[in-house]
């Protein structure tokens, strides 16, 4: 599904990714952990097509497409979704309006008929129930005056509606209380199936109690320094990252 080989990337003059290799087969959920500043968010944004970063070497292939050749919207049309770490506010633009425009843009691309307002509203209501969001979300501006938790919930709501084949969740768990975390995890789990892959960027093992990963990777200083099963996350929780980094250097 997703195949990243020897990816090097920089922002301004700083090299952030220094040769990342990562394979996520269809149907698997991988967690990406690592200390602050190791390049986790950079990797997530590069997959989604953020132009602030310059890829200097390596490749990102997704379902045999060279992802780096596509614009962000083309990637979205191909089924790539990023749940943002800091979802931006767009004042005055209705939350549902944006979501409907997004879904219909993707449907057009796939040659499907666009949903009309009624069909769309039905779909949104159903997913809002899953995400335990109240009706007022329908009429609010995109992330406008949302609390941190509401923003994250909204990201996952969008994901459940757009039904991507590759979902990257960038610290979707941070800032959530335990109840909200369960709801968000529930939303994410509802999408798990054999044709869909996910990459969860997180600092905390806690999320992985609710969304069980197939593989856990540790990114440190721009490289994947270790990969393992979900028990790796538990070990990290106990021991921190230092032992890995020094081990890597040695």
């Amino acid at each position: 599904m997703l195949s990243i080989r020897n990816l090097h990337a920089r922002a301004d003059d700083m090299e952030i990714l220094k040769g990342v290799n990562l394979e996520i087969p269809a149907g698997e959920v991988h967690a990406l952990m690592g200390p602050n500043g190791s390049g986790k968010s950079t990797l997530a944004q590069i997959i989604a097509g953020r132009e602030d970063f310059k890829v200097t070497a390596g490749e990102v292939r997704y379902r045999d497409i060279d992802l780096l050749e596509l614009t962000p919207e083309q990637r979205a049309h191909e089924g790539v979704f990023l749940a943002f770490q800091y979802p931006v506010e767009i004042p005055g633009v209705n939350n549902v309006y944006l979501l409907k425009a997004a879904l219909n843009a993707q449907r057009r691309h796939r040659g499907e008929t666009e949903l009309d307002a009624f069909e769309f509203l039905q779909l949104v209501r159903e997913k809002m129930q899953l995400m335990q969001m109240d009706e007022s979300f329908l009429n609010r501006g995109v992330n406008e005056d949302f609390s941190g938790g509401e923003k994250k919930r909204n990201e996952v709501l969008q994901m459940t509606i757009l039904e991507p084949t590759l979902a990257v969740l960038d610290e979707t768990d941070s800032g959530l209380d335990i109840d909200a975390l369960k709801v968000v995890a529930n939303g994410v789990n509802s999408l798990r199936d054999a044709s869909r892959s996910m990459l969860l960027v997180t600092h905390y093992q806690r999320l992985l109690d609710y969304i069980e990963p197939d593989v856990v990777h540790v990114l440190a200083d721009g490289k994947i320094v270790r990969s393992g099963g979900k028990e790796l996350a538990l070990e990290l929780e106990e021991r921190g990252y230092d032992w890995l980094q020094s081990g890597n250097a040695a």
């Binding site: 097509g49 962000p72 979704f81 943002f84 979802p87 767009i90 944006l98 757009l162």
Partner: peptide, 8 residues
């Protein structure tokens, strides 16, 4: 970027 990432 947010809008474009959603396919708009």
């Amino acid at each position: 970027f947010y809008c474009r990432q959603r396919g708009i």
